[in-house]
Design a protein around this nucleic acid. Structure first.
Lengths: 296, 296
DNA sequence: CACCGAGCCGAAAATATCTTTCAGTGGTGA
DNA sequence: TCACCACTGAAAGATATTTTCGGCTCGGTG
């Protein structure tokens, strides 16, 4: 299997893609990717050779990077870059973020966190493959039952998805316990759906049940920040989340969660649309049922 | 030798230029110019040879046309074309102003959801009282123990906060069970912290334990979308979340969650800043501890 | 410590693409 | 009819891109 696939020559989501793929890049490729993400307009004006010199690498590396980013070659990356530059030009001024520091006043913390999460949402939305998403929705609608796997922070996202799906009448279960997850995965069969949520894409506790489900013939979906991670091996559909950069005070769990939740919401709304006849009454019913638990 | 000059490589005004210069073009060149102006995106995908074939002319003619339009050569025209296409693309009506409809294509759903959640983040950040936030952080740092109450969707937020605080060494517990919440609240005393999370601000199951904690002398915090709701009655500090509009396909639970999580993140980072000496090592330790659970 | 892959990297060959040259074509007016 | 001229495209020439291939470093191993 080649580095990346299923990645359409994205127009706007380039910076996001650079960030998601950076971990799987070599040093030289990272330099190239960085240059490209940092100054799309400038790089669009350069030939392979020029960009290679600028980044202190070789033409081959530039081409390899372009490939990794999802383009057939440098030529196409360059076209995308030109488009991006034009967009930026006509668009708004770029907002600058510095990292959160230990001595940042609380107001700055709020602003930076909000900005980062907004960025994560925008990037994830831009980088989300709607075809894969649609396919996942279709599978969910038809599924006899749906299992969702996630541990740690992703476990909460799994629960969130499950709660939502249950509300509109789907048979969904979230599993945080790896053992139970696997034992339940064995019950799945063709037509059922298994969803694994893992930011790193390499969480064994989540991959294992997905593998089992995959081998049992269930339709498998991975929601991950690493479209090249091991988890995708057993995923029929991969939904990629983008993440803001992380730091000491801003652990991975935090930024990944935002993107994952967006994807989960999209799945939910997609399913609700397709099953509107039953979903709409179910939603208002659950709303009614809770009403009496609210004080006047 | 330069055919025309004084014409800078215009980005957007291409169609106009084509019209202006059309009279001075030969028949073949007009065909090329027309194709280019009519379908920038499509032409950007073609090589000289491709465009020549498409217009039934030769490469030379294509290059001549590019020159006439003010570009050094076809390569540059092509880049401009790509930029133009991108602009047109993004110029399309965002369609995000409307509510999510049953028959919205999946791509629109993604865009609308992302937009709404971004809006929620911006609004929440803008409306958050940093003084109250700071006070809540101070209380958390000093607390002997911290209880967090939340049911339904807010329950997951409560768990998220708890997970984070535990990671940096605070004694935090999340309670979704109203009975257990109350029985635990009784244990609290002055200096301890109780946090209630409820979007509606009137969820009895959450208000009740907060009331108990309040009466026991604990410092109480409410994270709610209704700063005038009953819950604030027993809250020393109120942190307000904003929410995007809701609708049939977009239940309250969805948009409220985003704002709540932002507040939770702010609390976490605030506490981590104040306890940096212990928080930083604790965070890296938890990171290390999980490393071996990831596959190569 | 020497050895052995595995993967990374860039120089240079191979290919594709773009640009230029140049001769053929058809129309035009004397 | 012929000379002229502008237009055009085929093909040669120049660049740019892609591929190949061998050297290289690094991490593990005997």
């Amino acid at each position: 299997m080649v580095g990346t696939l299923g990645t359409p020559p994205a127009p706007a989501a380039l910076a996001a893609k650079v960030r998601t793929l950076a971990p799987s890049m070599t040093r030289s490729m990272q330099r190239v990717a960085e240059a490209v993400a940092g100054d799309p307009a400038g790089c669009a004006a350069l030939t392979v050779t020029g960009l290679a010199e600028l980044t202190g690498t070789s033409e081959a590396t530039v081409v390899r990077t372009a490939r990794l980013l999802g383009y057939p070659g440098y030529r196409d990356l360059r076209l995308a870059l030109a488009g991006l530059a034009a967009q930026q030009q006509s668009g708004r001024a770029p907002a600058i973020t510095t990292d959160i520091a230990v001595d940042d006043p609380i107001a700055d913390v709020v602003a930076k966190l909000a900005y980062d999460e907004q960025q994560t949402l925008a990037d994830t939305a831009a980088g989300l493959d709607t075809v894969q998403l649609g396919a996942a929705v279709t599978a969910l609608v038809a599924a006899r039952r749906t299992d969702v796997y996630g541990v740690g922070a992703s476990g909460l996202v799994a629960q969130d998805l499950t709660q939502k799906l249950l509300r509109i009448g789907l048979m969904a279960h979230a599993h945080s316990d790896p053992h139970l997850a696997v034992t339940n995965a064995v019950q799945l069969r063709a037509g059922d759906v298994a969803i694994a949520i893992t930011h790193s894409g390499s969480t064994g506790d989540v991959i294992e049940p997905l593998r089992v489900a995959f081998e049992r013939g269930a339709t498998t979906v991975a929601i991950t920040g690493r479209p090249d991670g091991p988890v995708t091996q057993y995923a029929d559909h991969v939904l990629t989340t983008s993440t803001a950069r992380e730091s000491e005070l801003r652990p991975a769990a935090m930024s990944s969660r935002t993107g994952q939740l967006l994807v989960v919401d999209c799945l939910f709304v997609g399913v609700a649309q397709r099953t509107y006849e039953t979903a709409a009454p179910a939603l208002s019913a659950s709303y009614e049922a809770l009403a009496h638990r609210h004080r006047p």
